[in-house]
Amino acid sequence: MCEFVVVEKNQEPLSKFYHLTLVFKMDDNYHCIATGTEIFSSSSRYIIEDVIGKGAFALVARCHKSDTKKAVAVKIMKNTHMQQALAEEAVLTELKAFDPDRFNFIRWETSFSFRDLLCQEFELLDCSLRKFMMMRQPSTLSLTEIRPILQQLATALNVLKSLGISHTDLHPENIMLVNHVQLPLKVKIIDFGLSGHTSQLQQGTYKQPRWYRAPETILGLPCDEAIDMWSLGCIAYDILSFVTQTHGQLPESTGCILNRKADLECFVALVKQMLEVDSSKRIKPCQMLEHPFITLGHWRSLNSSNYVRSTDLGRRQGTPWTGHQNTFIYLLIIYPNTIHNIYK
């Protein structure tokens, strides 16, 4: 039997609904959904199979779409968040003009209302970048694997910048792998719930996750699309922070060692440009796509064929620190005066 129950705060004891498969809290109310619950649009029927994501204003359920018999993701939120949903839908509508597979953002299919809920249907993706990195422990991502991830994300940010849109909520949980087995390292940006046109960003308002927040956001200065590049720079360093020390590496040729050293130096140079404190000097997505780390321009004078072929080469093992600690220490080393002034 399918059930969809809303329990008002301080009303029925929640234990009464423990037999239901899914229980989630939203807007101080408990929403209880049994596996097999059906939600409807005007043209389709969706059977909820599991809750795969939760946020402050919504949850995402994996659903079976009856008419196509495909698994899809449905974002569900209360209609009290209508304004935010409409703002997100406006951004998604603009992105409809671009191929989501080529430009690396989630495919939005349709939106509909069900009872007092707002629902958005998206393609079903695999797992977040954060989860993927955790799955890979104690192995880590090599620079040859980081490169295509950054290239895809820069491509997506380049589209957003061309539209004058800022994502404002870029972090590893909002970057998804499409299918880490069949399409390894293919990623897409998700969750445009806080996105909007840069011209509408209000100075001094809360935006960006704390540990991926640009200096201009922290200081309440005017912001533009460059805040997303700062977040991406933090993510890039976050990924590399999993690389701590080498254990049991196979012997490498001198050429491979030189190539890896050149690659690391080029990567660090790119991250410094992404984490430029002055947003007007921060590297732009189109410039990032032409950076030697992405184009492999720094290898032209080196024999890099073996290094390019092996995505495992240079992989490290070890116990990582948290990305938050690493990002702050990195900034403290690179921009000591700026960081000390901010925290005076």
Results as ranks from 00 to 15, higher is better:
residue 3 E to R: 10
residue 6 V to D: 12
residue 13 P to Y: 03
residue 15 S to N: 10
residue 16 K to F: 14
residue 18 Y to H: 11
residue 19 H to E: 13
residue 20 L to K: 10
residue 25 K to E: 09
residue 30 Y to Q: 13
residue 32 C to M: 12
residue 33 I to T: 03
residue 47 I to R: 04
residue 49 E to M: 12
residue 60 V to I: 07
residue 64 H to I: 12
residue 81 H to T: 11
residue 97 A to Q: 02
residue 99 D to S: 08
residue 103 F to I: 00
residue 106 I to Q: 04
residue 109 E to Y: 10
residue 115 R to M: 06
residue 126 D to C: 01
residue 127 C to Y: 09
residue 132 F to K: 02
residue 137 Q to G: 07
residue 140 T to W: 09
residue 140 T to A: 11
residue 143 L to I: 03
residue 161 K to G: 01
residue 162 S to A: 07
residue 172 P to G: 11
residue 175 I to L: 02
residue 176 M to Q: 01
residue 179 N to F: 05
residue 182 Q to D: 10
residue 191 D to P: 06
residue 192 F to S: 00
residue 197 H to F: 02
residue 203 Q to Y: 13
residue 203 Q to I: 15
residue 205 T to R: 03
residue 206 Y to F: 10
residue 209 P to N: 14
residue 211 W to Y: 15
residue 212 Y to D: 04
residue 215 P to S: 14
residue 215 P to D: 15
residue 218 I to A: 09
residue 222 P to R: 01
residue 223 C to G: 06
residue 229 M to P: 00
residue 230 W to G: 01
residue 237 Y to P: 11
residue 242 F to T: 00
residue 244 T to D: 06
residue 245 Q to W: 14
residue 252 E to H: 08
residue 269 A to C: 08
residue 271 V to K: 00
residue 272 K to P: 09
residue 274 M to R: 01
residue 274 M to N: 05
residue 276 E to L: 02
residue 276 E to M: 03
residue 287 Q to C: 07
residue 287 Q to L: 05
residue 289 L to R: 01
residue 289 L to Y: 00
residue 301 S to R: 10
residue 308 V to H: 13
residue 310 S to K: 07
residue 312 D to A: 15
residue 314 G to L: 03
residue 320 P to K: 00
residue 327 T to D: 06
residue 328 F to I: 06
residue 342 I to D: 06
